[in-house]
Simulated assay, not measured.
Amino acid sequence: MNYLAHLFLASEEPDERLGSLIADFTRGRLQTLAKDYPPGVMWGIALHRQVDRFTDDNPWVVQSRLRIAAPYRRYSGIILDILYDHFLSSYWSEFSGQDRQSFIQDIYRLLDRRRNDLPARLRALAPRMQREDWLGSYAEFEVIGQVYQRMSQRMRQPNRLAGAMEEVRRHYPELAQDFRQFFPELIVFVQQQERRNRP
């Protein structure tokens, strides 16, 4: 799951939304991180990690990975993370009654308000995220290819990620269907975590 999906799955509580995003910019044990962040942020970080584990093991996601040809499969986690934000944007009304652009603008305002609470790397990245509308732009299919290209250039080792868009085009309907089966299961999982494990 990428930024938009994690934010979507978090509750509307600002600390928890922040935590769902901060999780990608933190490492280490939750007990250690709890020294630096309040309980709401920590819940968002913990939920983000649970969502990632559930996603990695979900049969629909495994099936999506297997659709991707062998030369690209080692990057399938990255490919699907980005693509699933695109699918969430595409099928937003199936999962939410809130206007997608309103949701995204709420997130950008939250990042502005809580700028000083963000880890340094996210604090530095947030203005670019807003300027280039990372949360909204993935709705455009061609933007996905541009993201793969940029990520390919940032990797240290030679890689074939930039060519992954051909695989996505080839299997787009099947990958979209996998997502539409998977995401409701993920929503139920998050609801269960909220009921069982919320502090």
Rank of each mutant, 00 (worst) to 15 (best):
Y91Q: 06
L111D: 05
S93Y: 03
D117R: 09
S102Y: 03
S76Q: 07
R121N: 11
Y84G: 01
S89D: 04
S90D: 14
Y72K: 02
I107E: 03
R121H: 14
A120D: 15
E94D: 15
D117C: 04
I107M: 12
D85S: 12
L83S: 10
L111M: 07
I78V: 15
R115H: 15
A120S: 14
N116G: 15
A69C: 04
P119Y: 07
I79Y: 11
R114N: 01
R109S: 13
S89G: 14
I107P: 11
Q98P: 00
A70W: 13
I104C: 11
F87T: 02
I68M: 11
I104L: 07
F95K: 00
L122N: 05
L66M: 12
Y108F: 08
R74H: 12
Q98E: 14
Q105S: 13
G77Y: 06
D112Q: 14
F87I: 02
F87G: 05
A120W: 08
R67F: 11
G77W: 12
L83W: 13
R67Y: 07
F95P: 09
R74I: 11
A70I: 06
H86V: 06
L118Y: 12
D99I: 01
Q98G: 01
I107W: 00
I68L: 15
I82N: 06
L88G: 12
R100H: 09
L122E: 04
D99V: 01
S102L: 07
H86T: 11
S89V: 00
D85L: 09
A70K: 15
Q101M: 13
I82L: 15
L83Q: 10
A120N: 04
L83E: 10
A124Q: 12
S90E: 15
D99R: 04
H86Y: 12
I107Q: 09
I82Q: 08
R114D: 06
L118C: 08
S96K: 00
Y91C: 09
R67C: 04
F95W: 14
L66V: 02
I107S: 02
F103S: 01
G97A: 10
A124E: 15
L88A: 12
S96V: 00
I107F: 03
Y72P: 00
L122Y: 10
R114Y: 12
D81N: 10
L66P: 00
R115Q: 13
E94M: 08
Y108G: 00
A120H: 13
S90R: 15
R121M: 13
R100N: 05
I79V: 13
Y75P: 01
L111E: 02
R123G: 02
D81R: 10
Y72G: 00
P119F: 10
G97C: 03
I82E: 10
E94W: 05
R67H: 11
S96Q: 01
E94H: 14
Y84Q: 06
D99Y: 01
R67D: 11
F103R: 01
H86E: 15
Y91G: 05
P71W: 05
S89Q: 07
D112Y: 07
S89F: 03
A124G: 11
W92F: 10
I82W: 11
D117M: 05
Y108A: 01
I82M: 14
F87M: 15
L122H: 06
Y108C: 00
I79K: 09
R100G: 04
L118T: 08
Y108V: 00
Q98D: 03
L110T: 03
A120T: 13
G77S: 12
Q105G: 00
R73H: 09
Q105N: 14
L118Q: 09
S89P: 01
S90G: 13
L66R: 12
L66A: 05
